[in-house]
């Protein structure tokens, strides 16, 4: 973040003129935070919005200005991003590209119905605990042998119980791994809409404070701030509490121009006229009543297939025979085949 002092001052004056002292203090403290770090704070991953765009492009991810802006803000504010949009528009890819662009490891957690803490956060390793107690039996006897009564023995053991409820016996799952990681990571919580409401509630602590509470050990706070992405296909609505903790980003199917750019960057050297036809036809298919609409990666697959077959002119027959990378249901293929003339119309 490059802090232009004049702008910041402008803000302070305006906000001070208004009322809300509270707001004023928040801003001023933020300004000092920025200036305290000089031109580029250590925590700042991106200097400006343009840099986000360039870095994403270096990972072959074509990002719109809105996407770059939201990513920039989320990283600067250390807030999670809730990415919404239809399947296959590059929600997951965005998180992956950011991880690659920043050289951070990506920790991914796929959500599904029935996902709970023991699969997402941590689990006690009972077998290991038991094995240790067996092996340490003599040692335990030693400790207890000095004591006079049963109550004393229990107290004595209690003094040592930390040994068995320590991090050694915790099996880390993705969320805890992200919190404990010594190097900063990108955490991707994929398809959060598929999880149960309980899991969503349990995420709240993690998302607002980047900390997790394990009853036997205590609260663990993130060593480094992870960049968190949550993706949703809108299978169900997210709770207000979760939304409040995130920054929101909606990604739609790209327009024809952008999709052409995306295919071009993945398949350099593709014929422009063919490319335009491919992308236009796919865009029209998305408007049809299909069971599953073709996504961007399927456009790329189709283009790749056409290139491999060395086809440079699209005809109804060729489309009808090469639909497989694009459409995954027989009913969809039939529907498209019936409507080929309209799809091909210029």
């Amino acid at each position: 973040m490059r802090c232009r002092t004049s702008d910041c001052e402008g803000f302070i004056i305006i906000s001070y003129n208004v009322h809300a002292d509270f707001v004023y203090t928040r801003i001023s403290s933020h300004v000092s935070y920025i200036s305290g770090h000089g031109t580029k704070g250590e925590g700042m991953e991106f200097e400006n919005i343009l840099e986000v765009q360039e870095k994403l492009e270096s990972q072959k991810y074509i990002s719109s200005r809105e996407i770059s802006t939201v990513v920039f803000l989320a990283v600067a504010m250390e807030k999670p991003i809730l990415v919404e949009g239809p399947a296959g528009v590059g929600k997951t890819e965005l998180a992956k590209s950011i991880a690659k662009a920043l050289g951070r490891p990506l920790i991914r957690m796929q959500c599904y119905e029935g996902l709970d803490e023991s699969k997402s956060l941590y689990e006690w390793e009972y077998a290991k605990q038991l094995l240790y107690t067996q092996m340490l039996k003599d040692k335990i006897t030693d400790i207890v042998s000095e004591t006079a009564s049963l109550a004393d023995a229990v107290d004595e053991i209690a003094n040592h119980e930390d040994a068995f409820f320590s991090e050694k016996f915790i099996q880390t799952r993705p969320l805890l791994a992200a919190i404990k990681s010594p190097e900063p990571v990108v955490l991707l919580i994929d398809e959060i809409d598929k999880s149960d409401p309980e899991f969503e509630a349990f995420l709240l602590e993690l998302l607002s404070d980047f900390q997790i509470t394990i009853p036997e050990i205590g609260t663990m706070t993130a060593v480094t701030q992870p960049i968190v992405f949550l993706t949703s296909n809108n299978y169900r609505d997210m709770s207000d509490a979760l939304k409040r903790r995130c920054i929101h980003l909606f990604i739609d199917y790209p327009d024809i121009e952008t999709e052409m750019n995306i295919v071009r960057i993945k398949l350099p050297g593709i014929d422009e006229i063919l490319l335009k036809k491919i992308v236009t036809i796919v865009a029209r298919m998305r408007d049809m009543d299909l069971k599953k609409k073709p996504c961007i990666s399927e456009t790329i697959d189709w283009a790749k297939a056409l290139l491999t077959l060395q086809i440079d002119e699209l005809s109804p027959e060729i489309i009808a025979t090469t639909l497989n990378p694009l459409l995954k249901y027989k009913a969809d293929c039939d529907l498209v085949k019936r409507n080929l003339p309209e799809l091909m119309a210029s």
Binding site: M1, C8, F11, I27, L73, M77
Partner: peptide, 20 residues
């Protein structure tokens, strides 16, 4: 509060950014 903080990070006179 988030918005107010975020406005300090961008150029608020660029309407696209302000709107975003």
């Amino acid at each position: 509060l988030d918005v107010v903080r975020q406005l300090t990070l961008i150029d608020p006179y660029d309407e696209f950014l302000f709107h975003t």
